[in-house]
């Protein structure tokens, strides 16, 4: 049984990291220094690792979650805003797994383009390594913002009509 020790450092605050090994999501543990680590056991000789982040607006039922939180937060007044920039890191690489292998993924500062991370500790064959703007999430953010503003205007009109 081969063991992969994976560690992600410099993960920006507010980003929820997501790590996939051979297509399976792996639970990451946060340590007191703000790094995330996971130990994965595998029989395979080689593993494909994908590091990315979760975006709330990319969830399947994002519209349901958005409506529920909008209502619970009293028309969005007490609601924390969604990520406006929607910058997503994708660091996908293959690494040979022989015995115990340690891999460290050090993220770069988020930017709309450019390399997402530097991978050290093992001979990694990079497949994809970039930051990109998730256009779907950006579009959903715009829709959410528009619906929120229209709701506020409608609520203000209703309150004025009721008071008058």
């Amino acid at each position: 049984m081969n063991v992969l020790h994976l560690k992600a450092v410099n993960v920006p605050d507010g980003h929820t990291p997501a790590l996939y090994v051979a297509g399976q999501r792996v639970n990451l543990k946060r340590n007191e220094f703000g790094s995330y680590s996971a130990d994965v056991q595998t029989n395979a000789q080689e593993a494909e690792i994908v590091f990315t982040r979760e975006l709330e607006l990319r969830a399947k039922l994002w519209w349901l979650y958005a409506i529920l939180s909008f209502l619970v937060s009293i028309l969005g007044i007490f609601e924390p805003p969604y990520d406006r920039k929607c910058i997503v890191p994708v660091c996908a690489f293959r690494v040979r797994t022989e015995g115990e292998t340690s891999v460290q993924i050090a993220l770069n500062t988020p930017a709309q383009t450019g390399e997402a991370a530097a991978v050290t500790g093992a001979d990694a064959v990079m497949v994809r390594n970039e930051y990109f703007v998730d256009k779907t999430a950006r579009r959903r953010f715009a829709v959410w913002l528009a619906v929120k503003l229209i709701s506020w205007v409608a609520a203000a009109i209703i309150v004025c009509v009721v008071l008058i």
């Binding site: 996939y20 994908v50 979760e54 709330e56 607006l57 990319r58 969830a59 399947k60």
Partner: peptide, 8 residues
């Protein structure tokens, strides 16, 4: 590489 639709 398709980015998995995260968000849970």
């Amino acid at each position: 590489v398709s980015v998995p639709a995260a968000g849970s």
